[in-house]
Write a protein that binds this DNA or RNA. Structure first.
Lengths: 109, 109
DNA sequence: TCATAATGCAACCTTTAGGTTGCGTTTAGC
DNA sequence: GCTAAACGCAACCTAAAGGTTGCATTATGA
C-alpha cells in the first residue's frame, strides 16, 4: 500500500494544481522563463488581483518563487515541488500495477 | 510550453487529490482491493457520511468506481485516471528539464 | 518632474467545501 | 421475522475559496 504519510505531504501541491486558472499559470510558467503578473494575467478572464491571489496560492504551496525586479514581480516555476508531486503519483500507480500483476499471477495459477 | 488545454482536463483530478482525507483513501485503495465505506472510514476521524462525501468527490473525478454488493458499496481505484494525472506532471517537469538544458547550453556557449 | 505602469493591501461579497446530525431503506443472519 | 449493520438522502452549519473594487505605493521614461 502507498505510504499515506508520504502522500499526505503532497496534498497542498495537488490542491494548488486543482484549479484551472492555476493550471494555466503553471502551464505558462513551464516554459522556464520568468513572468510578471500582468504578463501572466493576459488572456485570463479575471482581474489582475485575481491572478495575484492564485500566484500567492502557488507560492504558498512551494510551486513558484518570485523576485521583485524594478516595478514588477517575476515568477518562476519550482521544479523540485513539481517532481515531488509527480513521484507521489508514480508510486501510487506503480503500486497499483504491482497489484494487478499479483492478481494476474494468482488467477493464472 | 505545456499544452494548457491538455493540462486543464486534469484539474478535477488534482483537486480531488488535494485533500488529506482523500489522499488517505486513495492510499488505502492503492492496495488494489475493493473496500466498503465502513472499512474505509475506520481510523479516519470523521463520520461515515463525511467519508461517503469524499468518496463521491473521488468518484465524480473519475478516480474510483463503486459497485453495490449486498448491503455494502465496494470502492476500487481507477488506474487510468491516476496515470493520466501522473503523465500530466511528467510532461510539465520534462518540459522544465528541457528548458534547463537549453539554458545550460546557452550559458556554456 | 509628472503621468503612467505594475504592484501591494484591504474590505467586501457569493459560492463551495468539509463536516455534522437525523431519519428512512435495504440486507444479513440468528 | 426481527434486530443490527451498511447505506442513501436531505437539511443544516461554518470556514475557506475565488473573485471584485478601491486606493496607496513605487518605478519608468519622456
Amino acid at each position: 500500500m502507498l505510504n499515506a504519510n508520504d502522500a499526505i505531504q503532497s496534498a497542498p501541491v495537488f490542491a494548488a494544481l486543482g484549479d484551472t486558472t492555476r493550471l494555466k499559470l503553471v502551464s505558462r510558467l513551464s516554459d522556464g522563463n520568468q513572468h510578471s503578473i500582468v504578463q501572466l494575467a493576459k488572456g485570463l478572464k479575471l482581474s489582475r488581483q485575481g491572478v495575484t491571489k492564485h500566484l500567492y496560492v502557488l507560492k504558498k504551496a512551494g510551486m513558484v518563487s518570485s523576485k521583485r525586479i524594478g516595478r514588477e514581480s517575476r515568477f518562476t516555476l519550482r521544479l523540485r515541488t513539481l517532481t515531488r508531486a509527480r513521484d507521489c503519483l508514480n508510486r501510487a500507480s506503480a503500486q497499483w500495477d504491482e497489484t494487478i500483476e499479483r492478481l494476474k499471477i494468482s488467477v493464472e495459477n
